[in-house]
Structure formats: C-alpha cells, structure tokens
Amino acid sequence: MALTALICDDSLLARNQLKKSLPSAFDADIITASNGVEALTILRSREVGLVFLDLTMPELDGVGVLEAIKADAMDCLVIVVSADIQPEMQKRVMELGALAFVQKPATADKLADVMHKYGLI
C-alpha cells in the first residue's frame, strides 16, 4: 500500500510547486492542508507517513504542528520546508523532531537529495 504524504502550506503556489517537484520514484498518495489546524485534523483522523511542513502560516504555524505531533507521539516523519532559514529556527525544529530542513523554494534537486538521504526514495 502506498504511503500517504501530506503537504501543509498556506500558499497554493508553494503546495503545487512542492507536489510537482517530488521525485517520480516517490510512490505516495499526496494530500494537502493550508494551515496547521487543518494539518492536525488530518493527522488525527488518518495515517500519514510523511509531512512536508511550512513554518510561517496563519491559524497554527509549523512549530505548533511539530509540538502537537511530539506531544501526541504521532508516528509520522516531518520534513520542514520553509523560508524562515535562521539557524536558530532550524535548530528549534530539529529539536522538535523534524527529520530535515529544506529551504524554500523547494526544488526537485533539494527534495531528491534529502529524501534519498533518509531512504524515502
């Protein structure tokens, strides 16, 4: 059964950009959420193996989502895809359990690199 991957970003462009830049070898059902609250609703209702998570979002930001994932011990991997590239922010999300940090805009090369590194493709 194919893995379900969730793309969470408030921007339609960013969601489409990411979806299109995913490696073709990545066999997954792709679903999307446009803020952190939506993402958590999805994560609590169905099994999601991998989340591509933006940080700067309305309603609930990416850090809030990571905190909830950690607090509820949800079993999903998170790759943060963000424009907030300050070293302190990268450190913070890694401490909250993110697998990797990808700087926006997410290109096919960057995604292939990080997904290969963690055995996702």
């Binding site: 408030d10 921007s11 462009l13 960013a14 940080l55 700067t56 979002m57 309305p58 963000s82 424009a83 907030d84 590239i85 300050q86 302190e88 922010m89 926006k104 805009p105």
Partner: peptide, 26 residues
C-alpha cells in the same frame, strides 16, 4: 509566496546583522 521567501532571506540577514533572533510573521 515569492514575497514570503524573499522576506525569509532578508530576516535571516537582519538576524545575523543584529546578532539576535527575528520572529517572522506572514
């Protein structure tokens, strides 16, 4: 979205310049 990405880069530069963390909002 283009503005967000560019703003993220500018905030990172500013944070380094000021030697502090910048809370980035949309």
């Amino acid at each position: 979205e283009l503005v967000n990405v560019a703003m993220g880069q500018a905030s990172d530069k500013l944070a380094r310049y000021l030697g502090t963390f910048v809370h980035l909002q949309v």
